[in-house]
Amino acid sequence: MASTIRVRATSSGDTTEVQALIQHPMDSGFVKDAKGELIPPHFIQEVTFEHDGKKIFVADWGPAVSKDPYLKFAFKGGKKGDELKISWTDNKGSSDQTTAKIQ
């Protein structure tokens, strides 16, 4: 199965910029479906980015993060060819992970 996570990490010398796009419904629990029934909450709670065995960024999310979440941040110490490990878990216990090379 294709990964739900798409990551682009680009090094510009000192810093590496990371952009991530995750496919997830991020249901808030306040929206009704076509039958007028509430769609139960279903959202990513935690996204973790690791580089060289060290956590470089952790996102804790509530249901107010938009569907198919987007994230951008930057860190120091990465270089071209290094691997980033990205993983998420949601409130129903589902999870996914992927690795991406810094370009």
């Binding site: 249901p63 993060v65 951008k72």
Partner: peptide, 19 residues
């Protein structure tokens, strides 16, 4: 809506999209 942990070495800057 969202809370981000910024370890040493990571920039104090984040972009996201919220409802």
């Amino acid at each position: 809506a969202a809370s981000y942990k910024i370890p040493e070495g990571t920039m104090a800057s984040v972009s996201n999209r919220l409802k």
